[in-house]
Each structure stands twice: as structure tokens, then as C-alpha cells.
Amino acid sequence: MQKGKNNSRRDFLKKLSLGIGGSAVALSACNSPDFDDFLQKNFKTLSKEDIDEIILNLEKKYSEKYGKKFSVSAEPAIDNTLFGYALDLSRCIGCRRCVYACVDENNQSRDPQIHWITVLQMDKEKGIDYMHSDIHYNPELVPEEGHFYVPVACQQCANPPCVKVCPATATWQEPDGIVVVDYNWCIGCRYCMAACPYGARHFNWSEPIVPDEEMNPISHYLGNRPRPKGVVEKCTFCIQRVREGKYPSCVEICPTGSRKFGNMLDPESEIRYILENKRVLVLKAELNTQPNFYYFFGV
């Protein structure tokens, strides 16, 4: 944080900041912000050159901080792509492998703990019933008799209520359907968390803690790069992976193959096959959020 900054622009900005009222200085002193960061515009409004510069600075900053080569991608959405996800409820056994694969891949805070995926255990008799679901189940072996499991993460809604309510336009939907957050722009008002019907958004209540050696250095600006405290984060379908043609890490780890992912606009894709041949369920359909995340029964 306190690195030598001989840059004249930064010096100028520092001097400028001294002129700002006492309270502002007190606030910024407590948050010890990088003033370039502070003055950075909304990612959506940045030019290509600005983005390149920011990315370079970030890579340098993170590489120094975590002591390993860090890459930050700003890869835009691929043309003619709309990502879709399908989850086979008849196969999911609730083992939570996906939860921790996601934590490792996406650098979620270990303490305080943040999980982008929540696995709900429900009773077969009651069917899909959130009010009687349990997230703390911890038996010797899963699946437990009489239960089934519904993993819930961001549903990447086509009509996202979280995007609509954000007062600062700090979150938006990319052309490939992924709803992303600009962590530098998010003010942390948490209106999106109140608006999300799936509990998919998570807040960095305190400074997130990820051990340096566990930090995944292959990151995306809108995805798994380290987050500051006081901002909201969420599942991005592993944006750093899927835009490079890989599967999200939850899909790769799943021991039962319950998780299916692909480009819904590609008629040859597996996801398209499922959508055309299986009957699919979306959670809370009555809210018209139009998720790009479907649940189905493979067997």
C-alpha cells in the first residue's frame, strides 16, 4: 500500500486532496486509497487505452502484493455467445465440492467466509421449499435418505433485478449474459443484495482474507481479481475461464456430472441439447427474472 510514488500526477493529486475538507481526508486516510484508483471512472465508460493502462497497473500491484506473476484479463464478451447453465437435480448429491472449487478459483474471502454457491438440502416429501431447507447439513455421507439437493448461485437473469436497482450503474449484464460488478465502482449500498431473489450477491463486510499461496493469479477484471472490503461480489460463471473457452470450475469439479454449461446460441452445444430435449425448471419463475440457469432431471 505505502509504495514510493514519485509520479508527479500522483503528487499533484495528493496535494489536491489536502485541500479537500477535513472529513474527506479523514475518510480517505482510513481507507488508504490509491488516488488513481479513487479517480478511476466506471469500467463501462473507459476507453481501450485506459483499460490497458489500468490492467498493467493492477497486474504490477497484485504481483508485488502476492509475490507471484499475476494476470488480469479484460477479455470482452465473445460475439454470438450467450452462456447458459443447466443443473441435473436427479444427479446432485449435495457434496459441496463445487462450493469450495469456486472459492479456490475465484479468490473468495476465507475469513469472513464468502461462498458464491449455496447448497440447499430439501425434503423429498416437501419438494422445492426454501423455508424448510437447510444449508448447514453435515452428515457422514451424502446424499441423505429422503432428501435432495439444490445448489443455488447467481442465476445470471436475463431480466436482472440487481442491475435495475444499482444507483451507481456499478453492475451490468455483459452481452454474453454474465452479470458483472465493477469492484472499483461499487459503493457498497447493498441495494442489489436486497433485490436479488436468489441470495446470490455477497458483501465484503470486512477486509477479505485469502492466503497468498492460495491466491489464484489468473484473473479477470470483472471476475476473480482480489476485492477490497465494502463491495459486493457474485458468481460470474468463472468469466476468466469461460471467455477463454474453458468450463467454469464448478462444472469441472462436479463428481456426478450434474453441472452442464455452454453457449446457448450454438445449436451443437450440450446445453442446447438439454434445453431442447429436457423439461427445464427455473427458480422463482413468478418473479420474471428470466434466469439463464436451468434445473432439470436427467434420469
Partner: peptide, 22 residues
Amino acid sequence: ANTHISKLHFSEVMKIKPESPP
């Protein structure tokens, strides 16, 4: 979906230890 769910059957072979709860 709930009708499907009531008929769900997980095979015994698939039983494994779950990761720790949140």
C-alpha cells in the same frame, strides 16, 4: 418438478463425505 423429486432415487454407490458446511 416436485413429482419428479418425490420419485428421485440416488444409488448407494454414490455416497461420499460432504465438504464442511458454511
